[in-house]
Amino acid sequence: MNVLVVKNLSKTYGSGETKVEALKDVSFSVSKGEFVVITGPSGSGKTTLLNLIGGLDVPTSGKVFIDGKNIFTMKESELTVFRRRNIGFIFQAYNLVPELNVEENVVLPMLLDYRKPDEKYINELLDILGLAERKHHLPNQLSGGQQQRVAIARALATKPAIILADEPTGNLDSKNSKDVINLLKMCVERYKQTLIMITHNQNFMSYADRVFYIEDGILTELGGRQK
């Protein structure tokens, strides 16, 4: 079953001489539970693609279906609700809420959805990610690796259909990067999550089920470790 279908997606910035085609007619689909890595040089359109999949940006043309729903036909408010229920984001710069402690940050998407967080599940998540001791710490009391683990927990908290990670290890050293990726991979497998991750790190491509390569807005599949 395809949890994500991208059809003929194009995105153009500006017009005339300053026109930049960030994405050109990109199509692919991802099945449930897959771990997809997108790689490519800087400025190739990776982040644009991820933003479009996450509904943070609107395409010039093309469609994105998540769980069979065309996200660009939704109204802004519907999309917001859809996003918080079905998509989990992990950013390069962690983007935790500095005023909230670890636990609050993790349950925040649930709270914004006016749902009661499943405490058992959250505790389990924090346990797996090695944050159980840090529950009441604030983000700036944590190391970069720990902060990114909080961001992973936050992305997983709502059990979304799809997790989008934009260079989650970009700010981390190699040991921390490795830990984070391992944990991410483990969680994805354990909770049968679908993950789309942008990375430059060649080493992490071997973790992926499929690897896509973007250059000049054009997407090609490099293949990968098939299940």
């Binding site: 609700v81 996003r83 918080r84 950013f91 914004l112 709502t158």
Partner: peptide, 8 residues
């Protein structure tokens, strides 16, 4: 960021 993680 708040909007990205699902604030309406």
């Amino acid at each position: 960021v708040m909007r990205a993680i699902g604030m309406t």
